[in-house]
Every structure is written in C-alpha cells, then in structure tokens.
Simulated scan of single mutants.
Amino acid sequence: MALVLAVLALLLWLGGSTLPYDWQWARAFGFVLRWQDGTPVPGPLLIGLGQTLRIAALAGVIALVIALITAILRLSNSISGRWLARAYVEVIRNTPLIVQISMFYFAIAPLLGIERFWAGVLALALFEAAFLSEIIRAGILGVALTQWEAAASLGLTRPQTYRLIVLPQALRAMLPPLTSSAVALVMDSSIVSVIALAELTTAGRNAIADNFLSFEIWFLVAGLYLTITLTLSAFARRLERRYVSTSGPARGARIRTIS
C-alpha cells in the first residue's frame, strides 16, 4: 500500500510539474486547518468531513434496520412479503444512486415535509439497505438447519429464534462484508452533494468557487476521503482475518434454504 501510494504521488508530482500552473498549497491547507489567535480551528473541508461522517453514520444505522427487515421478509413464508422485498431490492440495485437521491429530494421529500439533510440521509440509507439485505440474508442462510431445529425443540418463537439463536451466529459471517460496506457508504455519501448538502464534496466545490484552487482542493478532498476509507478498510481486513475461518457452518452440516 505504501509503495502504491508513493508511486501515485510521484506520478502526480511529475504530471503537475509539467503544467503551467502556480501551485498554492499554503492557501489550500487553510481550508483544512486554520489558526486564530494561536488556536487551531477546523477549516471548511474538515467541517465538511465531519458532516460526511455524520451522514454516513446515520444512513448506516437506518440502512441496517431496513436491511434486516428486508432480509427477514425475503425469508418469510409470506408470498406478498417476499415479492415486496424482492421488488424493492431489484429496483434499488438497478437504478443509479444519483437518480434516486434526486427523485427522493424533489418528488417525495416535499410531500412528506422532509428537510434537505434527512432527505439525503434517507435516500442514501434506502440505497445501501438493498445491498446490505443480501449480506444479511446470506448470513442467515449460512446458519445450520440443526440450529433452527434445536430452537423449535425448545419451543422458541420465530422472533426469539432470530434474536437468540440465528442472528448472533450469522453476525460472525456478516461482520467483514458489513464493515466493507461502510467504506462504500462513505464514498457514496459524496453523491448527496447534488442536493447541495454541506458535506465534504460540497465544501470542496464551494472552496474552489471562491478561490479557484481547483487542483489543490480536490487533492485535499481526495486525501481526506482516502484517510477515512483506508482506516475502515484496515478494520474490515482485521475482522475478516479474525472471523472468516469460523464464520461458515461445520463440515457436513445442512444449510437451511428458504424459498
């Protein structure tokens, strides 16, 4: 990773040196961190990064709830529930996120009285939930049939079976891909800039419009995104190394398939 980043930095430096462009990094770094009376003050880009993390965190929590409900509906005995959940997943997964955000903000949010911030969060959550639901469904299907039979023999209800038996075991298999999805969620949050939500990408655009430091600002924006995503990716790899060897069912165990 260090070698790749070093080669990329070298290529960018060589490419930048050939451009007739006056680089002004001293001015650009002021949009990340400023000093006022000897005290560091976060600049517009850091404030935008905080808003990005807030959007991603809220959207992630809402997406997990929606994804869990969708996954359980797809595994239920209800025909209407299965088809409703499947239709939601297929429609969301096969349309661009930028189109969904625009439609939600301009068509649905005004009818429901949803403000700009929550319109972006909910649109992002609905998009991510469609992908998370498949991860959760796969994790549930990976629990051995004997676990369901044991729960039934104890007289547990279906909600109790999910809560006490199935989901704790499925979570071991779901954690690595769920954490990787958090990386995608942070990157996808940049698209809410189309509705002028004040996150990192929007802050970068505003800084460029005010000071015309296009290259410097975009490099700083990319660096901030890279810092967050590399941190989350490292955490995801650590979880994968820890859980992947024990996440699958025991050898010879039967897998419960629910149509």
Rank of each mutant, 00 (worst) to 15 (best):
R158S: 05
I136T: 09
L167K: 00
A144L: 02
Y162T: 01
A150C: 00
A151K: 10
I140W: 06
Q147M: 00
L132G: 00
Q169C: 02
V143A: 05
Q147Y: 06
Y162Q: 10
I140A: 12
S133M: 10
S133F: 11
G155E: 13
S153V: 10
L167D: 12
L164P: 00
L154M: 15
A138H: 08
L141K: 14
I136N: 06
L171Y: 13
V166A: 04
P168Y: 12
A144E: 15
S153Q: 03
G139Q: 05
L171P: 00
T161A: 13
V143L: 05
P159Y: 07
S133T: 09
V143W: 04
V143Y: 07
P159M: 04
A170C: 07
R163Y: 12
G139L: 08
R137F: 04
I135S: 11
T157Q: 03
Y162N: 11
L154E: 02
A144F: 06
P168V: 13
A152Y: 12
A170N: 01
A170P: 05
V166E: 09
E134N: 07
Q147N: 14
L145I: 07
L154D: 02
E134I: 02
Q169I: 04
Q160K: 12
G155T: 11
Q169K: 09
L156C: 07
I165F: 00
G155Y: 13
T146D: 15
Q160H: 08
L156K: 11
L141I: 03
I136D: 08
V143P: 02
A151P: 11
V166N: 03
L171S: 14
P168N: 08
T146A: 15
I136M: 13
I140R: 11
T157R: 15
R163C: 01
L154G: 02
R137Y: 09
I140S: 10
A144Y: 05
I140F: 13
A170M: 03
E134G: 02
I140N: 11
I136Q: 11
I140K: 07
L132H: 05
E134C: 01
E134H: 03
L171Q: 07
A152F: 13
P168W: 10
G139D: 12
I140G: 13
I165D: 00
L167I: 14
A144I: 00
W148N: 07
G142H: 07
P159N: 06
L156W: 13
R163E: 08
L132F: 14
I165V: 15
L145K: 11
L156Q: 06
R137H: 13
T146V: 15
V143D: 04
